[in-house]
Design a protein around this nucleic acid. Structure first.
Lengths: 332, 332
DNA sequence: AGTTAATACTAGAGCGCTCTAGATTTGCGG
DNA sequence: CCGCAAATCTAGAGCGCTCTAGTATTAACT
């Protein structure tokens, strides 16, 4: 399947290859008449410029690599939307790479981007250790979203603040036995845990943390044992919506009604949390805005490669919905 | 930012460029000793092969383009997972392009893939008209998932069967006034409507169709008016889960309880439909399997470019969950 | 018309790799 | 130690484009 090249178009239009190149890049220096003729013959031959060749030949083709951790999490979809919007016209040269929920594919995905010689990588939801990322940041500028990576421009959410807001909300409602459901594999869990601990400490309450895994089913099992105990918690603050849904499931399974018997607060404001019938109280990390700001950071970095590294933090917002209320009574 | 080239590695290792190339491609013809030396110096120099140059130079670099319509719909995430699994090792050369929910970006996304000279495109959720797609199928083999495209290998779900199953389920429960909530912009809506009509016709029931839009909120508004009418339907079959959730919302808004006052059946078995607290009765299209079969179709096509076009259909499965029951009574 | 200054166009080198065809080395039976 | 095939390695021509440095053409103004 031989494809049409620039050479073919040039010959057919009776001009040089270089001129066709200029025309297709909308560069100046081509007369209107010739430009039209070139496009016409291009269309006739069904010519599609070869991007591969173009980016090999040119040094200035700025392409941006986007790493997304997991397509199942619509948070990343939001970030991606924001990114694309913030990038505007630049978004035509995006190269996507998708990792996997366990982080196993992150390395391969980043390699792909580096090997595709993207000028910059915007990464959302990286699970790799800082140390492993150093290899990449030394080669290609990195804009990290929703996680702070040394050596990269960072656009992140203030997890500490979000976790405090969530915990203080529960404390304010009168809860005392508040469990924090953590996941050592998840982004930002450390800071969220810290925010939880701070808020609990300031209120003179004892912390109670349970480690859980990323998957909903496992989170459900992990929390199940706790919910069955006689001195069970009256509220659970989950490190993200996904595991909060697991808690909801577990509660239902053990006959606890939410929020009457148990208050549940999630984190992320994922689309699932917004669903009718769930109305999960959660913390909105403003994912779309995160993406947009990442775009700006990326554009700035490309324009000024030597500028100092930036870190932008966005304050998350607590969204009180239906799964949190006063303990025992069920009153809002 | 000058990057390390194969030339650099060759010089440092004291061999020819060609040999480095062979080594990095794990090709035979390189002695074990030399191979090791090459990799060692490669690592020392932090060499990353330039994929762009590689694919320009080689004719046989098979890369596969993947078009995904919309990252917010986790159906596509499932398809993608299946695809990646089915592709196995081949999945290292995936090039992703993402459209948009309104289909506006589909053209641009496909152009990107063609311009990246992918050897084949696997497309999930295309909204473009057949006619617009002809341009692409003439250049690059296309495997279409979840939609039948002329001139492409197709892996699709039997929408007719799925819609019949859903409708017959409702009829079997005793419903008579069953609304089909359609969306003229959505994939497969035509066939789903047809399945609905067939099932209704065979049962001697009158059809009742309402056009809706893709977004949940609008679907909610569209269905609202119908639900308020005195002679309202006892069941709604929505063309997909997304709009089914809108129906659920509308029902709640107008004080109808589901499934007691209104049965609702969706389509897709999206992750949202599986959530605790929703338990939407829906039709499972087996998205993951769709992806896997697409992978096989792609591999077959790449191996045998001249074989006749294939069409594989998967029968969807009705999943009866909590939102459907006998009319008026609420008994299952 | 004659000079200058734009404007329009072209030749050819090169981006970093792959691949073909040929050169060199190695292994091994006699 | 020779001969010859197999194993190992290399030179150099592209892949389809961009970009620099230049040539040809037209416009602009004395």
């Amino acid at each position: 399947m031989k494809s049409v090249t620039m050479e073919d178009v040039a010959r057919a239009a009776g001009v040089s290859r270089a001129l066709v190149s200029l025309a297709y890049r909308n560069a100046p220096g081509v007369s209107v008449k010739t430009r039209e003729r070139i496009f016409r013959t291009g269309r006739e031959l069904n010519y599609q410029p070869n991007r591969i060749a173009a980016s090999l030949a040119s040094k200035s083709q700025t392409s941006i690599g986007v790493f997304l951790s997991d397509l199942h999490n619509d948070l990343f979809a939001d970030i991606f939307d924001g990114l694309r919007q913030g990038l505007g016209d630049e978004s035509r040269h995006l190269v996507l790479a998708v990792g996997s929920i366990d982080g196993q594919r992150d390395n391969a995905a980043l390699d792909t981007l580096v090997q595709s010689r993207v000028d910059l990588i915007v990464a959302a939801g990286l699970l790799l250790a800082d140390h492993d990322l150093a290899t990449y940041t030394s080669t290609t500028p990195l804009v990290s979203t929703a996680r702070v990576v040394p050596g990269a421009d960072n656009v992140f959410t203030n997890n500490l603040s979000g976790a405090r807001q969530a915990t203080e909300h529960l404390i304010g409602l009168g809860h005392q036995r508040i469990v924090f459901l953590a996941n050592p594999r998840s982004d930002g869990y450390l800071e969220r845990g810290m925010g939880y601990r701070q808020a609990m400490g300031e209120a003179g309450l004892e912390t109670w943390e349970i480690a859980s895994s990323y998957a909903r089913h496992e989170a459900e099992a992990d929390i199940g044992a706790v919910l069955r105990s006689s001195h069970r918690p009256t509220a659970v603050f989950a490190h993200n919506d996904r595991s909060a849904l697991g808690v909801l499931d577990a509660a239902r399974h053990y006959g606890l009604s939410v929020p009457e018997d148990l208050s549940v607060v999630g984190y992320d404001n994922s689309s699932a949390s917004r669903l009718p019938g769930l109305e999960l109280t959660t913390v909105d990390i403003h994912a779309r805005q995160l993406g947009e700001l990442s775009a700006h950071a990326a554009l700035t970095r490309l324009a000024e490669p030597t500028d100092a590294l930036q870190s932008i933090s966005i304050d998350p917002t607590l969204l009180v919905r239906g799964t949190s209320s006063h303990p025992a009574t069920g009153r809002k």
